[in-house]
Simulated scan of single mutants.
Amino acid sequence: MTMPETETHTAVLDRIVDGETAVLLLEEAGDVVDELALDVDALPDEGRHEGAVFEVRVDRDEGTLREATYREDEERERRESAQERFDRLSERLPDE
Rank of each mutant, 00 (worst) to 15 (best):
P94H: 10
E84V: 08
E28K: 07
D31K: 02
E20V: 12
V56Q: 04
V32N: 03
L38I: 07
D87G: 05
L36H: 14
D45A: 15
T69D: 14
T69W: 08
T8H: 06
D18V: 06
L38K: 08
T21W: 09
E5D: 09
R76P: 08
V53D: 13
G30A: 01
D73G: 11
P94S: 08
V53R: 14
D61H: 05
E91S: 00
G51Y: 02
T10Q: 06
L36M: 15
V56F: 03
G19D: 02
E74V: 09
D34A: 14
L25M: 13
V12T: 14
D39A: 13
T10C: 05
L26F: 10
R79T: 08
L65W: 05
L13I: 10
V12E: 07
R57G: 05
L26S: 03
V58I: 12
D61N: 13
L38C: 08
L38P: 13
T6D: 09
A37S: 14
S90D: 13
E50C: 07
E35S: 15
M1C: 04
D39P: 07
V56L: 04
D95V: 07
A22V: 01
R48T: 15
H49E: 06
V58Q: 02
T21A: 09
T8N: 09
R60G: 02
E27G: 05
E77A: 13
D39F: 01
M1F: 10
E91T: 03
T10Y: 02
V12S: 04
V33T: 15
R88Y: 01
E91I: 00
S81C: 05
V33G: 06
T21F: 07
R48H: 09
E96G: 14
E91W: 00
D45S: 12
D31L: 07
E46M: 05
L43S: 14
E74K: 11
R57V: 13
V53Y: 09
E91N: 05
V32R: 12
L36S: 10
R88L: 04
R79C: 06
F54R: 07
R92W: 01
P44F: 10
E75Q: 13
V33D: 11
R15E: 05
E62L: 15
H9M: 07
D95P: 04
V40H: 03
Y70P: 02
E75R: 15
E84P: 07
R76A: 14
F54C: 04
D39T: 10
A52S: 10
P4A: 04
E35I: 14
I16Y: 00
A68N: 08
E46L: 11
A29D: 11
E74A: 12
R60P: 01
R60M: 03
E77F: 07
V40P: 04
R57H: 08
A29W: 02
A82E: 15
R78H: 11
E5M: 05
F54W: 02
R79W: 03
V58W: 01
E55C: 00
E72S: 07
D31V: 00
R48Q: 13
T21Y: 06
G47F: 13
R60K: 08
T8E: 08
S90I: 01
D18L: 14
L93R: 13
T2D: 13
E91V: 01
D14H: 14
H49R: 12
G19H: 01
V40Y: 00
V23I: 10
E74F: 09
A11N: 05
E46Q: 15
E84H: 09
V56Y: 04
R71D: 13
